[in-house]
Simulated assay, not measured.
Amino acid sequence: MRVPFIKMHGLGNDFVVLDARREAIPAVTSMIAARIADRRTGIGCDQLVILEPADAADFRMRILNADGGEVEACGNATRAVSMLHGASATIETAAGLLRAEPGNDGATVDMGIPRFEWQDIPLAYAMDTLAMPVGWDGLENPAAVNVGNPHVVFFVADCDAVPLESLGPTIEHDPLFPNRINVNVATVENRTRIRLRVWERGAGLTRACGTGACATAVAAMRRGLVDRSVEVKLPGGVLQIDWGQDERIAMTGPATESYRGTFEWDHFA
């Protein structure tokens, strides 16, 4: 059975999209997702995205990381599938309903209202999530935010100097985070600009993370470090993050279709 796919990316955070809204595909297991995502023997991607019909939305989006684990939300993927859909859309995700509005070169996504209670991150035990009394090898007192998926944010003098490739997996798998965690290291450049690198849960170092940009911006705003509208510069490019007075986060940025193809399902099953 040959299955069509669409390769897309948002600022270099890349996806293989399987569109099952009109024609069903076989069940995607964690093993199959990891095999498709493998950059040497599969198609290669940070996330596998599956679009399906939905009753209470325009369509449903499922997201599986490169390790095969299913996650709740992905901001860059939401912009990408919004561009693919080509019109305003309400998208059902494991994190709830997201509203996306495509533009000329990208999309704006209503990412919803962030959560800050320790049990909503979740953490293993109660603590202040604005300045957590914990640290790992020089990274200390992070903030924690859930923006559909869980993030921990460290503010540092130079995020490029942090050995995130080694510290990222250690923090991701720390027992403090029962569902694991996305790890963000950020440098505030001025009141309207943040520089950010992200170790993404289940995917590793990434060129861009939309939910990470949202979480980092909101954490900086809560600490009074930046205004309520900021640019977040990631290795792959810039996202605009606005946190409205209604507490909802708007994320705006580009998304691109790279190419289309087909693959033999049995090669990965």
Score class of each variant (00 low, 15 high):
W243G: 05
Q47E: 02
G42N: 08
S30Y: 10
A208D: 12
H151N: 07
N190D: 12
G44H: 09
E189C: 13
L84G: 06
N65G: 12
S258K: 07
D19V: 11
N76R: 09
E92S: 13
I43D: 05
L234W: 01
E189D: 12
F15K: 00
V198N: 07
E165C: 12
E231T: 10
T252W: 09
S229F: 10
T129E: 08
R62W: 00
T216L: 03
E101F: 14
K7R: 15
D174M: 04
P133C: 06
P235A: 09
S166C: 13
E257R: 15
A66M: 08
N141V: 15
D227P: 00
M127A: 01
D266N: 05
A89D: 08
P26R: 09
A255M: 09
G148W: 02
E72W: 07
A157Y: 07
T108E: 06
E189K: 15
N149Q: 10
D58L: 06
D242T: 12
A269F: 01
Y125R: 13
E140C: 13
A144F: 00
D58H: 07
F15T: 00
A269I: 01
V71D: 04
E257I: 15
N182K: 06
G75T: 01
R40L: 14
V156Y: 03
L130G: 11
G244V: 13
P53N: 03
C45D: 04
V16M: 05
G202P: 03
A100C: 01
E101I: 10
F15Q: 03
I113Q: 12
R62M: 04
K7V: 12
E23N: 13
A20N: 01
I36G: 06
P169G: 13
V232A: 00
G96R: 09
V145T: 13
N149S: 12
A220G: 10
H173A: 14
A144M: 04
D105Q: 14
A161N: 01
I50V: 14
A27Q: 14
P169A: 07
L234V: 07
G75D: 07
I25K: 06
F268D: 02
P122W: 04
R191P: 04
I36K: 08
C74N: 01
N13M: 04
F155Q: 03
D46Q: 12
S166D: 13
L205R: 01
